[in-house]
């Protein structure tokens, strides 16, 4: 029993698959199938790919409905669940807001109320017309983005392919969204480090898991500072402004898609997040804007 490691890039980040298997060929073939499925999901759901289904849906905004398959319908159903769980803050149609806040102005400045209002007019998951076969964005310029769900979904599917392929021990890390199963071949749990949002080399905490997932949502990857205030890219769709309470939240859950959406919803809920996460029964680690680690017992 050896650990076989495969690294690859997709969805604009670097990914890693680690499989514990006795047979190198078996591990390699299984990893190939897993990587192929991750690439399939990227090709289908990336908003940066012209030919993707998401791009086609976005290009048809304000015009025709676009037909979709059962997989896409299930993802949109899941996005709907997250929208409701977050009181409307989590919204896959908030692309116009992300663009507004991510736009690099020189010198950096906070967008004005009129700009935010214009962007908000292009946001609104409840206004999306959909049934099980098709989806239509009602206004031209409206767009959907499955960030926060798609990569996590890909991690869960890759794990399922590995498990079904007879791989007893595995770890899938898609750009920080981690799904593990079976523990390590030496009998220990997988040790999942939580990245320091300040860019420090050492993880701020470690979660040990035999089976399950850990995903992190944070604003340290993109964002800007004006007058000492940091503006991130996680935008509350109800007021059109970046959330300010957390720098990052990591959530552990049985499935990566649950961990990922849970982390994003927690970011959006701000100071209500601890209570909400406790109600979900999720283990979590958060870093607030002052750099303090939560929950308290996690502090080193």
């Amino acid at each position: 029993m050896r650990l076989h490691r495969y690294e690859f890039r997709a969805m604009a980040s670097s990914h890693e698959i680690v499989l514990g298997a006795g047979d190198a060929l078996h591990a390699a073939r299984t990893a190939e199938a897993m990587i192929a499925d991750v690439q399939r999901i990227e090709a289908k759901y990336s908003r940066f790919r012209h030919g993707s289904l998401v791009s086609r849906i976005n290009r048809a905004a304000g015009a025709a409905a676009v037909s979709m398959d059962a997989e896409t319908a299930a993802l949109l159903d899941y996005a709907d669940t997250c929208h409701r769980a977050s009181g409307g803050r989590f919204d896959i149609t908030s692309g116009a807001l992300s663009e507004l806040w991510e736009f690099r102005r020189d010198p950096p400045r906070v967008p004005g109320a009129d700009e935010i209002a214009r962007a908000l007019a292009l946001v609104g998951w409840p206004s999306v017309e959909r049934d099980h076969r098709s989806v239509r964005l009602p206004r031209a310029g409206m767009r959907i983005d499955l960030g926060g769900i798609g990569k996590e979904y890909a991690a869960d599917r890759a794990a399922a392919i590995g498990i079904d392929g007879g791989i007893a021990h595995g770890c899938v890390n898609l750009g920080g969204d981690v799904r593990v199963w079976g523990g390590r071949p030496d009998g220990g749990p997988w040790r999942i480090g939580i990245r320091d949002p300040d860019g420090g080399r050492d993880p701020i905490a470690t979660l040990d898991r035999f089976d399950g997932a850990v995903a992190t949502s944070g604003d340290y990857e993109r964002g800007f500072v004006v007058d000492g205030v940091r503006y991130g890219h996680v935008i509350d769709a109800t007021d059109g402004r970046p959330v300010m309470h957390w720098r990052s939240v990591s959530v552990a859950a049985p499935l990566c898609v649950v961990a990922g959406s849970g982390a994003t919803v927690a970011m959006l809920l701000g100071h209500d997040a601890p209570a909400w996460l406790a109600a979900q029964g999720c283990d979590w680690i958060g870093v607030d804007t002052s750099g303090a680690i939560h929950p308290r017992e996690r502090r080193p």
Binding site: I163, D164, G166, A168, W181, G182, D211, G212, P254, L255
Partner: peptide, 12 residues
Amino acid sequence: PRPWEKGELAKP
């Protein structure tokens, strides 16, 4: 087991 815990049970 919950659905995501059935990796072992799936072995031949």
